[in-house]
Amino acid sequence: MPETVLPLLSLRDVCANYGPSRALHGVTLDVHSGELVTLVGRNGAGKTTTLKAIAGLMRDRTGSIAIGGAETIRLAPEKIARLGAAYCPEERGIFASLSVEENLLLPPVLHQSGYSADDIYQLFPRLYERRSSQGTKLSGGEQQILAIARILRTGAKLLLLDEPTEGLAPVIVDQIGDIVRILRQRGFTILLVEQNFEFASQLADRIYVVENGRVVEHFSADEARSQPDRLRAYLSV
């Protein structure tokens, strides 16, 4: 894949440990500006850890992670955020001691290009209706929407979304899919971790397969659609 433009996100040989046990064994991947790239793989393959490493949450990490050309392997999470990366964790991370609105307004605006609270409320009227209730009183789907919405305000360019569909009803999964698609159209660069194979292959420009803490295979959207069985083989138990 010859590319002249520098990728927005570039991982080279990234290793990371949980205490004494190694979770990533040299992950290498690129995400270009405006792309939607998906990481698929079995449970425990290292997908979430890869996102956490990019967000700076894996303290014990080595190799190279560049965001917009800037090396972040030694940066604190708050510094990485200022480079335009935003992380949405698997468990959504909605704060129980904050109202819906406080949750939404919590992340500071780091770049002016972000959505305003009004934009977000217009996009997700349900959040407006429930803005003064406790964050964790929302339904799972609403919490997921809030978790994504909240990082749109910051002006982040690179969204790291960890399994946004996990544990949600099919209708809501479709809704989340629409949101992700809209974000992609509006120019966000997205790195998505997904176990839901259908969901992933419908949305993604490219797909990386992660296994045992490494990237073992790479599919373009066309390849994924034309050879679904090959991709599925990686995910079957």
Partner: peptide
């Protein structure tokens, strides 16, 4: 940790 990823 999560709060730090928001740039705080």
């Amino acid at each position: 940790d999560l709060v730090r990823t928001f740039g705080i």
